[in-house]
Write a protein that binds this DNA or RNA. Structure first.
Lengths: 146, 146
DNA sequence: TATCTAAACGCAATAGTATTGCATTTAGAT
DNA sequence: ATCTAAATGCAATACTATTGCGTTTAGATA
């Protein structure tokens, strides 16, 4: 994550700064979406400090570079695990443990665009989030641990 | 919209109150997503007043009853035009004029669930938003009115 | 390695968004 | 007309987000 981010930042002409690396590091460790202020708190626990405005700006850049994604319905950000793969990135979100699974599927994209096309709508990008239970939480439910 | 909402509220044992009807009326007229505070402003222009907390609560209820939807990435709410149809409601959003098109498609749902199932994820509901240009805005772009 | 500059950051102020608890009001049942 | 649980209004508070501007710094150049 860090290594790749440095590469991308450099390649696109953006400076490799301490705040940027710190945010990337947090995202890299996080197992669920984190908000700008959560990132700030996490850094604080490490004895570090970043202004929240800076964090907002870093996250905006990372999303722009496809190194992270914003999950609107969660108000949080997560690292992108698909690399700079083209097309729509989709998410499965376990609303028990908060775990995120990122995926992409060309067939789904085609189908969505097809339906849109029928009414003359020209799709540019999607936001797709599936909510449910991840396999381990689902097993937990079955076992009666509600 | 109003008539149907009254029916649903009543049927589900919720009171039919003035604030609820006023919010429903605003949503019914709106051609794009509106935030709680926007609703408050619109009512103000009509010489009416609702506390923003009330508006939040009304919207929450309307979503619960499937009479409205929240569009997370837009931070706004829109009326549901599909009725109490089961399944995932999807949206196409024109980011030029803000127009919303709501639709549902069982095949897409099945496909998404299928993919999720492969990794043991149990989908309960989706959030799906396609961003692009509606047919009239697209024509406008082609005509050079950028 | 020192110098330089555009880019990035920190700070302060401010605006917008959202939630909670509690007192008051009211829909609608009797 | 009366009554009560449900709903609303109010006040306080917390969280989220944006903007402008002065200061710092990454990294290019010599």
């Amino acid at each position: 994550m860090i290594r790749n981010s440095i590469q991308v930042l450099h390649a696109q002409g953006y400076k490799v700064t301490r705040p940027r690396l710190q945010v990337v590091e947090i995202l890299g460790k996080a197992q669920k979406p984190v908000s700008p202020y959560e990132i700030q708190k996490m850094l604080k626990q490490q004895g570090r400090y970043l202004n929240h405005v800076t964090i907002y700006r870093v996250l905006e850049l990372l999303c722009h570079l496809n190194l992270a994604h914003k999950l609107p319905s969660e108000k949080g950000f997560i690292k992108c695990i698909l690399g700079n793969r083209e097309g729509c990135h989709r998410f499965m979100i376990c609303h028990k443990c908060g775990a995120i699974q990122e995926y992409a599927d060309d067939k789904l994209c085609r189908n969505e665009k097809e339906i849109a096309g029928e009414i003359g709508f020209h799709t540019q990008y999607h936001v797709s989030e599936s909510y449910g239970l991840c396999s381990s939480c689902y097993k937990g439910e079955l076992a009666g641990n509600v």
